[in-house]
Design a protein around this nucleic acid. Sequence first.
DNA 1: TATCATGGTGAAAGCGATTTCAATGACAGG
DNA 2: CCTGTCATTGAAATCGCTTTCACCATGATA
Lengths: 326, 326
Amino acid sequence: MVKMKDVAELAGVSSAAVSRYLNGGYISADKAERIKQAIELTGYVRSSQARALRTGSTKLIGVIVPKINSESVSRITAGIGQVLGRRGYQMLLANTDNAPDRELEYLDLFQNHPVDGIVLVATMITDEHRRAIDSCRVPIVLIGQHVEGAACVYHDDYEAAFELGRALAGRVDGKIAYIGVSEEDRAAGYDRRRGFEAGLRAAGNPLDSALIRLGSFTLDSGYRAARELLADAPDVSFIACATDTMAAGALRALDEVRGMGEGVRRVSGFGDNAFLRALTGGIPTVHYGYLTSGVEATNMLLNALDGEEGESGLKTLKLGHQLMNV
Amino acid sequence: MVKMKDVAELAGVSSAAVSRYLNGGYISADKAERIKQAIELTGYVRSSQARALRTGSTKLIGVIVPKINSESVSRITAGIGQVLGRRGYQMLLANTDNAPDRELEYLDLFQNHPVDGIVLVATMITDEHRRAIDSCRVPIVLIGQHVEGAACVYHDDYEAAFELGRALAGRVDGKIAYIGVSEEDRAAGYDRRRGFEAGLRAAGNPLDSALIRLGSFTLDSGYRAARELLADAPDVSFIACATDTMAAGALRALDEVRGMGEGVRRVSGFGDNAFLRALTGGIPTVHYGYLTSGVEATNMLLNALDGEEGESGLKTLKLGHQLMNV
DNA sequence: TATCATGGTGAAAGCGATTTCAATGACAGG
DNA sequence: CCTGTCATTGAAATCGCTTTCACCATGATA
């Protein structure tokens, strides 16, 4: 492997000069030219490992996601990757498989296999998380949750759910049920459920708390919860779900219990999943700019890293949403 | 940041001893104990950058994918991540967004930001790809394509498509159409189309080449191709697609043109997408163990890296498939 | 007693860059 | 002619670890 010294010798200069050439320091025009040629001739590329050791920067960003094989997360990841690539960084991806303690584990791991910054696609934020985030040596941006004192890019789940609830209350006659997710997930669990309830209430059609069930983000959990629900309360006429994926499960349950095609106008979700949209013609749901949130979060992070120290500052950014098919 | 020398001083030994302790070299029991305590006391973690510079190994695996937000790829990625995590490696993820030349770019980039090995979730393999793969300094495993002379984990798309075609030929009366993808994608384009045709032919119901259209892996492209198809040949009674995602698009087209619910028994796909299965009750499709292919490929790669040199060897591995809903 | 393995040990030499530092030469102003 | 800038330059010191090497005990073997 050809190293800097080789290039320097070939060009008849010191390796310091080569380094300056590469990093834009003082260098005379003719030496610059000789170095350029020597580099082309040898096909030299600098060792990022040596560079990292010396400079302390790896140009690596750690990205922690709860589950890679989900439409929302993979879109976010796509957005993150776009910006990273464009700005000369690379992505170290860690998948926690929905285990919040593995998030902590990776937060830790990333301090050792050092990254220059971290993007955390967050679900549950415990006190331990907050502590880990605070004591993190590198800048970190959260996606999907609003945490006081931390940089985050998120959606207003309460407001979106409120609007959805209010709109549906007017449209649906009969009982409305709700399949949510763990309230430890502040955004997708707590906020959506509470917003939805408030929306229904505002429209004068409050949610019967006996008609609330819990799923776990998977299609199957939505299916099971809906089956239970339909068994316990056969007169339910609409099932709102905290995610489109669970809504797909509920849809199947409705189709099985009530006959094919029955479900389509009787469920709602969150996330505006493309498959669901195509296959059902569109259930009521909330569209979030997932890709955008990845892009924004990453730009924020990299600005803080590259920026003229302080100019940029990590802040919190709330993105908009859009009601679909209501 | 506390470094090895600090630990060594605190423990009253040389840093060589600490290094040996950490890496399992000769060390006496009492010194080991003192070092252990010193490490705990200081909270020392070794700098992976210095380690990488010295040893030449980064414990990083580069993973190149054509598109992260697709069910099949994200499942593969999940499998890769599982194994990597378990075996102490990390994943450097590169998303090419379906641009084959960006694959080459990343293949190159990974030689500079060095990784210990590469997993390439492959689509099109050009001669340039083959050359890049051959001249790669680190071991590399392909997923999804069978390339002579390279290590790969793949599915037998020809055989699967053949079986699917043969099975469908008997079940469908009327004209069968096919929406494929670029034949430059040997597995998903060429093999599936040819296998399917052969299967139909074997069952005595050959495919009319006028009823073949080309999509581009997206739901929308499947939709557009199907609309065209239905406009050109209104008497088509079944549309087979090269992917489930495109099948979802075709389904929507059929529903629009022929009325809701009509499409469900009139399309087939590849990949056994979970959403599609839930929402349609299951169209004819081929189930591939995507997660498994990620797992197997990664194990193969890491065995070649960690293994007792040669014991392991990179090879090619063909995984099975399963016809669904036929 | 002479000879050998053998387990343990630390000093020191890298790994391949970046960066400090002192030195140089040129050139303008006084 | 002296002094002060200012652009350029290379030697050398790091960055934090791994690994070679020479060397010491110690106990076993001849």
